[in-house]
Simulated scan of single mutants.
Amino acid sequence: MRNILVTYQASEKEKEFYRNFFKDQVISFLDDYAETDKKEKILLESEIIIAWNPTKELEQFNKSLFSNFHLIQLLSAGYDHLKFEMFPNKCLIAANQGAYATPMAEHTVAMILALAKKLRLYHNRLAEGKFEQMNSITRQIKGATLGIIGFGSIGKEVTRLMRSFDVKVMALNTSGKTNEDVDFTGTLNDLDHLLIHSDFVVISIPLTDETEGLIGKRELELMKNDAILINVARGPIVKEKDLYDHLKNHPDFSTGIDAWWIEPFKFGQFKINYPFFELPNLLGSPHNSAIVENIMIEGAGKAAENVKRFLNNEEIKGVVDITV
């Protein structure tokens, strides 16, 4: 039997799920212990951690208590919020790869459609009493080119949904290869080519040293004047000032932002440094693209399945490089 510890504040429904799923293991929940000494004892005994943000959940404890950690399984699909130096080098860290792809893809497509059809703009004009039917021109989706930067689970699901509009698909991933039915596949070396030819560009790539600031002034200017940029990955992949300036100076260009530069999950607050919400060509959401009914249980299920693979000495998904 292995000692598994859930460090985030799981709901009673989630706790019941974990107890049933890991009935042959020792499963504990950090928030069930009030006294610090008991928390420290359970941490020292734990081999497998299930966490949302272990950096914050465990920052009050001495890292010597983490010496027996063999696996930290994240509930989140991203991992840029972690301080890897907190944890033993021998400890594997696994992101919850693909756990939220379906709702995030739906959210992405909704943003594309809302911006292409200018729903916010014409809703506001109607609210002002302006009924401008023949002058309220919108874009047709059929036959457009969709560019996806980061062709993982989310990008593939976006492609599946958008295929009903008969779009062409350009996809970038690390290998430049895919078994999916797309019209072009490349790596980040082909970024310019994708930006030049795409009508809609979706960012669904992890934030790393390589991708931070990937889209800046030069890249934005390569895009079509009426392109639509959707970011459901991480804010810093796009340079904030450059995006604001481009939106302000190119009124036919529009963007949907679900992932922001400064968010509560990582920084404890939401903050933007430029008045994005004064712009009519912006559509924003509070990084809730994954938040649908029962998603926490679904996410817990994906994470638990990965832990099960670890327990069975099988290859686990989403392993990240702890030395970064």
Score class of each variant (00 low, 15 high):
Ala114Gln: 07
Gln73Trp: 05
Gly155Asp: 02
Thr108Gly: 06
Thr174Ala: 02
Trp52Tyr: 07
Glu35Pro: 04
Tyr18Phe: 15
Asn249Tyr: 06
Leu113Asp: 05
Ala105Val: 02
Ile149Ser: 12
Leu161Glu: 01
Ile196Cys: 07
Asp181Phe: 03
Ser153Asn: 12
Val109Asp: 10
Glu16Lys: 02
Asn312Phe: 05
Asp80Trp: 04
Tyr79Met: 09
Asp258Pro: 11
Lys168Gly: 07
Glu212Phe: 06
Thr55Phe: 13
Ser204Arg: 10
Ser46Thr: 13
Lys317Gly: 05
Arg160Asp: 05
His250Val: 04
Phe265Trp: 12
Glu180Trp: 04
Phe29Leu: 07
Ile112Thr: 13
Lys117Asp: 06
Phe165Glu: 00
Lys241Pro: 00
Asn294Cys: 02
His107Phe: 15
Gly216Gln: 06
Phe29Glu: 01
Leu82His: 09
Thr138Val: 15
Ser67Gly: 06
Leu191Ser: 05
Lys63Ala: 12
Leu82Asp: 01
Phe310Thr: 01
Val182Phe: 03
Leu119Lys: 04
Asn281Gln: 01
Val6Gly: 00
Asn96Tyr: 10
Ser175Ala: 00
Ile137Arg: 12
Phe84Val: 05
Ser254Ala: 13
Ile228Trp: 01
Phe277Trp: 11
Pro236Tyr: 05
Leu282Phe: 15
Ile203Gln: 07
Phe276Gly: 02
Asn89Trp: 00
His246Gln: 09
Leu195Glu: 02
Thr7Ile: 04
Ile262Pro: 08
Leu214Gly: 09
His81Ile: 07
Ile93Phe: 08
Phe267Gln: 15
Phe17Gln: 04
Tyr274Asn: 11
Leu75Met: 13
Asp183Phe: 00
Phe29Ser: 10
Ala303Val: 12
Ser46Pro: 06
Glu47His: 09
Leu30Asn: 09
Ala303Met: 07
Ile112Arg: 01
Pro54Ile: 11
Glu305Asn: 13
Gly235Asp: 12
Glu12Trp: 09
Asn89Asp: 13
Ala101Phe: 05
Glu314Ile: 08
Lys23Ile: 15
Ala116Gly: 08
Ile93Cys: 08
Leu161Val: 02
Lys13Trp: 03
Val320Leu: 09
Asp209Thr: 13
Asn313Ile: 00
Thr102Met: 12
Ile272Gln: 14
Ile215Tyr: 01
Leu43Ser: 02
Leu119Trp: 07
Glu210Ala: 15
Ile50Arg: 01
Asn313Trp: 00
Gly150Tyr: 01
Glu219Phe: 02
Leu279Pro: 02
Lys168Asn: 06
Arg139Glu: 10
Asn135Ile: 11
Asp24Pro: 00
Glu47Arg: 04
Gln9Ala: 12
Gln97Ala: 10
Gly268Met: 03
